[in-house]
Every structure is written in C-alpha cells, then in structure tokens.
Design a protein around this nucleic acid. Sequence first.
DNA 1: CTTGCCTATGCAACAAGTTGCATAGCAGGA
DNA 2: TCCTGCTATGCAACTTGTTGCATAGGCAAG
Lengths: 196, 196
Amino acid sequence: MALEHAILVSLLEQPGSGYELARRFNRSIGYFWTATHQQIYRVLKRMENDHWIEARHVAQEAAPGKKVYSVAEPGRAALSAWLAEPVELEGVRHDLAVKIRGAAFDDPAALIDEVERHREAHADRLARYLAGEQRDFPDPATLDTGQELQHAVLRGGIAYERMTLGWLDDVLATLYRLKDGRRQQERRGGHGPGRT
Amino acid sequence: MALEHAILVSLLEQPGSGYELARRFNRSIGYFWTATHQQIYRVLKRMENDHWIEARHVAQEAAPGKKVYSVAEPGRAALSAWLAEPVELEGVRHDLAVKIRGAAFDDPAALIDEVERHREAHADRLARYLAGEQRDFPDPATLDTGQELQHAVLRGGIAYERMTLGWLDDVLATLYRLKDGRRQQERRGGHGPGRT
DNA sequence: CTTGCCTATGCAACAAGTTGCATAGCAGGA
DNA sequence: TCCTGCTATGCAACTTGTTGCATAGGCAAG
C-alpha cells in the first residue's frame, strides 16, 4: 500500500501530528490521495513501531497536546526503495459512470440533477485548485525542486477537474437529448425504456 | 458499495457467469470499474442469496459448466433505489502523484523511466478505447438509449486518458528541466537536493 | 507426453478502509 | 447556561479488497 508513503512525503515536506495530516489529506495532499483520521492514526502507530518516524510531544495552550511526527532515517530509506520500484497503474472507479450506464434501465432524465450536483462539486474543486495555484505558485520562474514537483502535481489536479467538467457537460447534453427524444417518441405514441 | 450495482448493470446489459463478468471487468466495464474474480464470486453469492439475481446452469462442451446469472425483480428494484439516491464524489488516488512529490527528497531524474512507462500504458489504453469506439459506435446517429449512454461513458474514458497523457508529458518536461538544471548547478559546483 | 494455458468456481487468510463511538478541555454563540 | 464545534487521539467492529491456493477437464505446442 502507499498510504504510508504518502504520509512519509507529507511529513518530509512538513512534520506534523496525525490530526494535522488528516487535514492535509483534505487539502493539498487530498488532490491525489484521501484518508480518514482513523487510517492515519493506525498507520502512524505502525510506522512509529517500525522506526520510520519519530514523535515529539508538544504541549499547547487552549488545546490538547499533540504528537508531532518527523521522518527518521529508516523511513527515508523505505521511501527511496519505494520510489525505485515500479507502481501499478491504478484502476478507475467511478460510481457516476455505473449510474449513467444503469440509467438505461430506468429513467435517464432522473439522473440530470445528480450529474449537475457532481458538476458543481467539481467546479468548486477546480476553483479551489486554481486559487491554490495563484497563492502558492504566483511566479513559476522562482521555484525550487520541491515546489516545481508540487506544482506539476497540482497541474494534474487542475487538468483532471477541467476534463471532468467537460465530460459532465457532455453527459448532460446526452441526457437532455435523450429526454427530448423520448418526449417526442411519447407524443407519437411510443414509449421509453421505463422501469419494466 | 457499488460493486453489486456495477454487476447489476453489467448483467442487465447481458446475462453472464462470474467468469464472464470478471473478463468484462477487464474490458468495457473496466473503463470505470475494476474487480477481481474473487470479489465478483463472493458478491454474486450474496446477491443470489438476496434474490437480486438468479442462476441458470449451462453445460458446455470442451469446458466446465457455468452458472449464468440474470437480474431478478428485487435486483432491478435495488438498482432503481440506488440510482435515485446521491452518490459521493470519489476521492482520487494516484500513486504516481505521491512518487512525484516524493521525488523531491530523492533523485527526480530517476523517476523519468517510471513516468514514461505509465505514459506508454495510458497511450495503449487510449488506443484500445478509440478502437472500441470505432468498433461499437461507428455511426453515432443510430444509437438507442443504452448505446448512447455507453458511448457517453466511453467518451469519459477517452477524455481521461487524453488528459492523463497530456499531464504525463507535462511531468516529463518538468523532470527533464530539473535534471538539466541540476547538471548545470553541478558544473558550477552546486549540488542537487539528493538524499541527505 | 508433459508442460503450460484457458475455462470455471471457490475457500481461507490477510490487508486496507469505513463507521460509530469515547474522551476531554476550551471557545463562542444562543 | 447549555449547546455546538474545534483540537486531538484512539478503540472496536465491520465491510471491502487482495493474495495464495485448490480443483478439474480440455486443448495446443514443444
């Protein structure tokens, strides 16, 4: 699995507690990886046991104390080893695509709201990514290696959201077309696929 | 989970055995969903228990007999119910993106081969999708509802692969740029980020 | 004729991911 | 004052997904 590697990278970029990591996994790292706090705490425990990371307790005013983790040498070595070995292409999983094909056996027009909802959510994500790009990489000429690579990954997220938006528009156009087509069929006495 | 729904859709499009489903999940359904035969057999068993699907035994020459499943009424109802409720946006998971950010703490140039490998694999997929489009949807004007929707999903796969190819080229350009930059730095007596 | 591959199904063990809950202090609004 | 929400960590139970193996007949190549 690669969650441990994602955590290593995140901790190398910036040491932090489990809670902080969980928030990052809803932000910048979340562009390409998601994880709940449960997963993170569990994996952190295992990684600490294996001496990949080390914890330092930090007291805080007005908040409970936290364990700030940083990467230890064995963790760095593990990351290097993983970087050197090939990873598999990941399979796609898209519930919405299942629904779209499934709509052929129900009412395609009923899917329009759902697709619009996804469209809005992806538009929001795109806006957040673009804002993040403006904020973090205002001048692409002055970046160090780490920032260059982070920017390249962010560009991937942006490209993904743009592509998805375009596709969802395409899907919406198809659904509207089918809806109109069916209405006209009904006027002529035909009937749609319906649900049995 | 949606594997059961993906199976329902696939069986509605065409009844089949677990083995056949497993193959479809490496082909057309595999555009947006993956599953191993183990998962499929296990879920089929549960679905049959819940009367979502029904099995018919089919003997074969020159091959073992098989159980061909079709969707029963409760399965159809379950699919309708699922289609009517909203699904969550799925989180992205991209090992390669983790590696790219991780490369900042190792040698970015060492990632070039790996990225090229992924590029080739995605180019292959794109070619397969395009060939499938030519084969299955040669005349977009004469499609029925089911085919229209299948085509829309396939267009999504095509868009995804094109986008990914473009991004991987972008990443490669970045990696080459960093490699050259570092070499020049070394000539001037500097050094790269290296590993410690 | 043996080795490997394809069809076809399945068990068992394990790894990974999700959901619900618990604790606990502090801050801010109703 | 009480309720909600944020920081912070974690257990327990459950569902999903993966890996390795087993069976078993036929077919084709070496």
